[in-house]
């Protein structure tokens, strides 16, 4: 991702570069506080429920080296957090729009390539 041009900065000290779609230019720049900044950048306040899902996606990436599309995200959520939370409706409620893209962004991962 290092060849992506920095489009704007997330923070006032201009240390955290974002690409035109709002993803981190440097994956290694991610931390929990960066995730909070990314969230507030899109008007979202992260609750424990949000964090659970960010962890699910980070674990998924750790294991499979790719961020999940919607179907595997639902499955991974079901496996990690149970039937009740493993539904697309639950994911959509917490991350309206495209949960796979939004969570990957907050988790500091590259955009899921399978979301077209």
């Amino acid at each position: 991702m290092s060849d992506v041009k920095i489009y704007r900065y997330l923070d006032s000290s201009k240390k955290i570069g974002l690409d035109p779609e709002g993803y981190l230019v440097e994956q290694s720049a991610w931390s929990k506080s960066v995730a909070e900044l990314l969230a507030s950048d899109e008007g979202l306040v992260l609750t424990d429920e949000h964090w659970e899902l960010i962890d699910v996606v980070r674990d998924f990436y750790q294991r499979y080296e790719m961020a999940p599309a919607m179907r595997p995200l639902v499955k991974a959520t079901k496996n990690a957090l149970g039937e009740e939370k493993g539904t697309s409706i639950y994911l959509m409620t917490l991350f309206p729009g495209s949960p796979p893209k939004r969570i990957a962004r907050l988790a500091g991962l590259p955009k899921p390539t399978n979301c077209l």
């Binding site: 998924f60 294991r63 499979y64 080296e65 790719m66 999940p68 599309a69 179907r71 595997p72 499955k75 991974a76």
Partner: peptide, 15 residues
């Protein structure tokens, strides 16, 4: 090169 094993492991997550 990226390893292919993680992707092979991931297939079941895509059913």
């Amino acid at each position: 090169q990226k390893a292919s094993l993680p992707t092979m492991d991931m297939l079941e997550m895509y059913d």
